[in-house]
């Protein structure tokens, strides 16, 4: 028979607080968080496209918000999220193919992801600045 009290007293699987902090674990969390940022960030893309389709006045309004310093900061954060998440995705594909599971390689991949994400975001930001 099903016993509600028994179900309630079942041990839960351990979560974040019981694990020692390691790089790959932190990177797994960051992968999820950047995915979450991008999820919300699609609103910025959709609003921008709809404004462009609605005419020059709407476009100017939205462009004005996006060109403000807070707008630029959010967009830069989203560009970083996209690049970081994309490299994180490549890392997952490497694992999917069965490579890179030993701790040393996994740590190296995580570090590469972190550094390459920031560097490439810088490259995109500089390129955007030159074009503007």
């Amino acid at each position: 028979m099903a016993d509600a009290r028994l179900a309630a007293s079942r041990p839960l699987s351990p979560h974040l607080q019981v694990f020692r902090f390691i790089l790959t674990m932190a990177m797994s969390i960051v992968h999820r968080i950047t995915g979450g940022f991008l999820y919300v960030g699609t609103v910025f893309v959709a609003v921008w496209l709809v404004a462009a389709a609605s005419g020059p006045e709407w476009f100017a309004q939205v462009d004005g918000v996006y060109q403000s310093w807070i707008g630029r900061l959010i967009l830069l954060g989203l560009v970083w999220s996209l690049i970081h998440h994309a490299i994180g995705g490549i890392r997952h594909f490497i694992w999917d193919l069965g490579y890179g599971f030993d701790p040393k390689t996994a740590d190296r991949l995580a570090l590469f992801n972190l550094v390459a994400g920031v560097v490439l975001t810088g490259v995109v930001a500089i390129a955007a600045f030159i074009f503007a």
Partner: peptide
């Protein structure tokens, strides 16, 4: 979708940079 988005996001980022200004 991950593989597709990975390839297409390259186009998207280049486009974003090109549209600046």
């Amino acid at each position: 979708t991950g593989v597709a988005a990975l390839l297409l996001s390259l186009v998207y980022v280049v486009l974003l940079v090109k549209l600046q200004g």
